[in-house]
């Protein structure tokens, strides 16, 4: 199975994603430059973390117009799986692949640390290797990670079980103490209505190696292999 990883000018987690795919789960990965129009035969796409175009205007606002986004959109419209991580999540929201927006953290500070997120749905192509309600330790690294959306969108996401991951506290509850950035409903990750585009602010690709003491991100990639290869 082949993962395509898009590199925008300013991406910085593309290599981590590559290593997770190749070394972590032993699958094939191909790097895709943002100016291209070829997805390299990828079965799954990753929009990686970073600061594409220096976050000018708004995070993801310019990257959304990168040439390759035309193909990314067509791929997603055709049901192709897209994993949008951190800056990739911001880009996916700006591009309209996912609803809502990611704005400045409520505390105004850039946050680089480990957080707890609870897996709210294991029926997705991205989370089927987790146990329902499992609490993961994943790192975050963002200044604009506060998920906001209209009340109607929030109700849709909640009603349709599309909040896939939620920030939780040490007890595993989605309390304010567990919410690092002020996201509405402690939302850390959401999926689109068709179930093929998943965006999250935490970095599973930076928590995919037991040697680094953080293996909780790896099952996300294993989930994709299980679902897409099946």
């Amino acid at each position: 199975m082949r993962f395509g990883i898009v590199t925008f000018p300013g991406s910085n987690s593309d290599i981590d994603a590559y290593q997770t795919v190749v070394d972590g789960i032993g699958e094939e990965a191909v790097m895709l430059w943002h100016k291209g129009h070829d997805l390299g035969g990828a079965d799954v796409l990753i929009l990686p973390g970073g600061f594409a175009y220096g976050d000018y205007l708004r995070a993801g606002a310019i990257a959304r117009f990168s040439p390759i986004m035309r193909e990314v959109r067509a791929f997603a419209d055709g049901g192709g799986r897209v994993l949008a991580i951190c800056n990739g999540f911001q880009i996916a929201c700006e591009a309209g692949l996912l609803p809502g927006a990611l704005v400045r953290n409520a505390g105004l500070k850039f946050l680089g640390r480990s957080v707890r997120v609870r897996v709210e749905s294991t029926g997705t192509a991205f989370t089927n290797a987790y146990a329902p309600g499992q609490v993961l330790r994943l790192p975050i690294a963002h200044g604009e990670g506060r998920f906001v959306a209209d009340q109607q969108v929030i109700e849709e996401l909640e009603g349709e079980g599309r909040v896939v991951m939620r920030y939780v506290d040490a007890a595993g509850d989605p309390a304010p103490e567990g919410n690092p950035n002020g996201s509405m409903h402690n939302i850390a990750g959401i999926i689109n209505a068709a179930g093929n585009v998943f965006g999250l602010m935490p970095h599973p690709e930076r928590a995919a190696d037991a040697l680094l003491g953080a293996p909780d991100g790896l099952p996300m990639f294993e989930s994709l292999v299980a679902r897409v290869a099946a």
């Binding site: 117009f65 927006a101 906001v148 959306a149």
Partner: peptide
């Protein structure tokens, strides 16, 4: 289309 994001 670009300068503002109507969501926010």
């Amino acid at each position: 289309r670009l300068l503002a994001n109507p969501v926010i």
